[in-house]
Design a binder for these strands. Structure first.
Lengths: 346, 346
DNA sequence: GTTGGCACTCGACTGTCAGGAGTGCTAACA
DNA sequence: TGTTAGCACTCCTGACAGTCGAGTGCCAAC
């Protein structure tokens, strides 16, 4: 895969990719010589382009058009030609300034992050909030509602709140509930929700649960409330920016794109895939192994705090994406959100 | 405005509107006589159509095309020709069956309602959750987080949960918080959030607040947590269905529509407008007094429970909307959601 | 190895033309 | 007087041919 290219070929490939990123149109040999000063004639450039096409880095939509980079071309560009420099302090500060999180709760932060990422990159922002199961138990509260319903409120260590309505034994009074929540808050403190689930399942079967009424009730309530956890929270921002890309300009493509962005399931699967990886991940074109998404690239990064809550954010756009701009944005934002979640900064 | 039309004109107008609703194309005189048995020749129908055009109910896109209803034509159709019959028990049951709310919390219900309405109508569903300020205070809970932050959780009478992170005096310990929440739960019970706000503002200025430390702290915390309430929750479902309408088939229109649906602000303003009205409201075309929305009609209804929580739901689609189908869906859904919110049914 | 020249290709655009759907008008009919 | 058949007219649509320009590939000369 990592073929050798001489310097001239590299320069020309880079020029083509970069010109194509801004113009979205096939690049001809004359255009190259005009815009870049290689001290080469169009004819020489044509020879190189012909070689690059032979090697699969370029292709031409038809005989008398210019050339456009293939996915392989973009790969080579990203892996070997693009240097993503770290952001300077000024740039960081500039990015930082776009985000305002003061006094926001989790959902709002996620939404805001997506919005700003989309605005900065001019592509579509995706943010998947930390899965609740990955967080650490902090506290549980009960609120009795009418008609024998019980509102259960969990709070995670990092301040995420999740609530659920369950049917509960109507004989439970306020004092019972207080006892139960005290019991659970004592027993489950500091455990991951996942571990809590397992512990509950286990304890419900022990000998002690048979005669300890309080424990039994506590366990069965929290079991009911924890099962079938609500689906994952995905925020899509700036979907309409996708429609501004010339590669998706036909009505059919627009429909397809919007449908895909609307069916969050597909996107969640995508973001889940970078769940285990470290740092920024880049999926170019068909690397997004999903039949419903064509011609798109995805740049993602994980964010997390020390308390185990892990989410994913990213930017999706056409393969012809301005990687040099987007990669630092995604990288920096992920780090920023991680710090926000630690409340190291506000 | 409510001009008189003889029966024949009415029949023909009705036929044109209904044919146009399914075909989205100009209707010619022959097509009318073919599809409906008026025992009239195309030429006679032409005469009537000419009159209807004169009166402003129809217009022709160009000389040799058929005719399409104007907004005025749609109005006349909706007001005088369309009879929205109530749903039969079977139909209600069929609609009812689409909704599954079991064990869902507010946000999920709202989302689900939008999804199902969109699915049933084949247009785009809008649901605006009850404004928190319109609900009735039930309970307040505090959870201390790290770095001196305090998570405040409100629960409304109808089970809506709202939470907010505030900075709090680090000297407050668990016992203080319990006292404060007990105090607030006692004092504020049964009041609307709006009233709570006012009460707090008032009491903070009283003489007593000066020396009663507990009260003072309680008031200032709840004041901090209640101010600047999070924005309204709007759920848009099936935006892509808008793109399937032939009237919005050009890329430019698609972009505009999606941008509009994405900027929830515009939609919230729209839905807010039917906040005071009773029953189903219909806005045809330019009656949606919003420069960003052209060629759309909106059908909305309010839902509420006896505890004061009031939200709005509706369906938005092209002016050429199947009103006879959508109106009962919106009407029924609003009633259904009201009952759900009362927990009369599950 | 580089370059200018030249023939070739192909898409984009333009103009023309025939076909079809629908209208408006008029005159004839019941 | 209301209805209808006939007919001329309008205008959209799609097919087709021709032109233009951008770009390529190849070859011969430097």
């Amino acid at each position: 895969m990592a073929e050798e290219l001489n310097e001239r070929s590299q320069n020309i490939l880079e020029a083509i990719v970069e010109d194509y990123i801004v113009s979205a149109e096939p690049i001809g040999s004359r255009a190259i010589t005009r815009r870049h000063s290689f001290n080469l004639s169009p004819a020489s450039v044509r020879n190189v382009m012909s070689d690059l096409e032979e090697m699969g880095f370029l292709c031409s939509p038809h005989t008398s058009a210019g050339r456009i980079p293939t996915e392989k071309g973009f790969h080579y560009y990203i892996d070997s030609l693009l240097q993503v420099r770290d952001l300077s302090k000024q740039e960081e500060a500039r990015l930082r300034k776009n985000y305002r999180f003061k006094g926001m709760k989790m959902e709002d932060i996620m939404q805001e992050v997506g919005r700003v990422m989309s605005g900065l990159s001019n592509y579509t922002g995706l943010v998947m909030a930390p899965k609740f199961a990955s967080t650490v138990f902090r506290q549980i509260e009960f609120v009795r509602l009418s008609h024998g319903r019980l509102l259960v409120i969990y709070v995670s260590e990092s301040g995420m709140v999740q609530n659920k309505v369950i049917k509960a034994d109507p004989s439970l009074d306020q004092r019972d509930l207080e006892q139960i929540s005290n019991y659970l808050n004592r027993e489950l403190n500091g455990m991951s929700i996942q571990a809590v689930r397992e512990k509950i399942a286990l304890e419900l079967q022990t000998e002690r649960a048979r005669y300890d009424q309080l424990q039994k009730r506590a366990l069965s309530i929290s079991s009911a409330a924890l099962q079938e956890e609500s689906e994952e929270l995905l925020f899509v921002s700036g979907a309409s920016r996708m429609l501004e890309q010339p590669e998706f300009s036909t009505p059919e493509q627009m429909k397809r794109i919007i449908q895909t962005l609307e069916s969050k399931k597909v996107l969640i699967d995508l973001l889940d895939r970078s769940y285990d990886a470290q740092g920024v991940q880049i999926f170019v074109g068909s690397q997004i192994q999903n039949s419903e998404i064509h011609g798109c690239s995805l740049i993602t990064a994980k964010f997390s705090n020390k308390k185990g809550a892990v989410g994913t954010l990213g930017v999706i756009g056409p393969v012809r994406m301005d990687y040099s701009q987007v990669i630092p944005i995604v990288d920096f934002t992920a780090q920023l959100v991680s710090r926000i979640m630690e409340r190291e900064i506000e």
